[in-house]
């Protein structure tokens, strides 16, 4: 038996918004630790890794590990029926269940909506993402600022080069209409920690990425005030949004473009 109750259905809704344009389906792996989703885009260029820790739920019970194979567009339809302040409870029988139940309760407890979502068998391979990668450059910034940079620059071109040097971090883009270069610098004096920009550099780093995927990643901005972008020569970029203090995270990995 699996049963988990989250006080804010909106958190789950935001997680779905953060992944559904990039991947169409995935296994939500449920264990005592929490709920984990790992999925790659169809081109196998990027990967999203979501973790919702058990302690981030009001109630969490998972007797046996199970994978809920879900078509994300369908789950999105169900979650769109949740009210802004609704709580959500997800229930499923053990492995082999055909459906999962989603129940939304209004904050006053006077409106309860229940859906049975059809599950599917998804053959998904888990990629072994190394945990011990050391990155030569890390940029921490407000997630709204990251979203704006990507949104602005993606109108100019479809490839962006991120360069971190002692002068700051620059995002360079070129396209048919011309070129753009946006440079940000560390700003650790901002009043609120969430408004600070922190650029950490072990060594100057310059890598090129497809803008299309970075645009997908900005969909997670509503989940977190800040985003951390970690890059190193010739390894995948990591874009990480933490959910709350302890609730979990959405991490995206993106293979760089490399000049051969």
């Amino acid at each position: 038996m699996f049963e988990a109750r989250m006080a804010q259905a909106s958190t789950l809704k935001k997680v779905l918004e953060a992944v559904k344009d990039m991947v169409s389906e995935g296994n939500f792996d449920c264990s005592e630790e929490g709920i984990c989703l790992q999925a790659m885009d169809v081109a196998h260029v990027s990967l999203v890794n979501v973790l919702l820790r058990a302690q981030g739920f009001e109630m969490f019970r998972c007797d046996r590990n199970l994978a809920l194979g879900i078509q994300l567009a369908n789950l999105s339809k169900v979650l769109n029926c949740a009210g802004k302040d609704d709580a959500v409870t997800v229930k499923a029988e053990d492995e082999g269940a055909d459906t999962a139940e989603f129940m939304f309760e209004s904050s006053k407890g006077d409106r309860i909506t229940t859906f049975e979502l059809t599950l599917m068998d998804i053959d998904s391979e888990h990629l072994g993402v190394p945990e011990d990668t050391t990155y030569t450059a890390v940029i921490k910034m407000p997630s709204t600022e990251f979203r704006r940079i990507i949104s602005d620059l993606s109108t100019i071109g479809d490839t962006v080069t991120i360069e971190v040097s002692k002068d700051g971090a620059s995002f360079q883009v070129s396209g048919d209409i011309g070129k753009g270069n946006l440079c940000i610098q560390s700003n650790t004096a901002a009043d609120k920690p969430s408004e600070r920009v922190e650029i950490t550099m072990e060594e100057p780093t310059k890598q090129t990425y497809a803008m299309r995927y970075l645009s997908f990643f900005t969909k997670a901005a509503p989940l977190s005030d800040t985003v951390t972008i970690s890059l190193s020569p010739d390894v995948p970029l990591v874009v990480e949004f933490n959910i709350g203090e302890e609730v979990g995270y959405v991490k995206y990995y993106l293979a760089p473009k490399i000049t051969e």
Partner: peptide, 14 residues
């Protein structure tokens, strides 16, 4: 022109 790499190859390499 830079060539887009496949993510699986990276993680296989690591």
């Amino acid at each position: 022109t830079p060539v887009q790499n496949d993510l699986e190859e990276f993680f296989a390499m690591c």
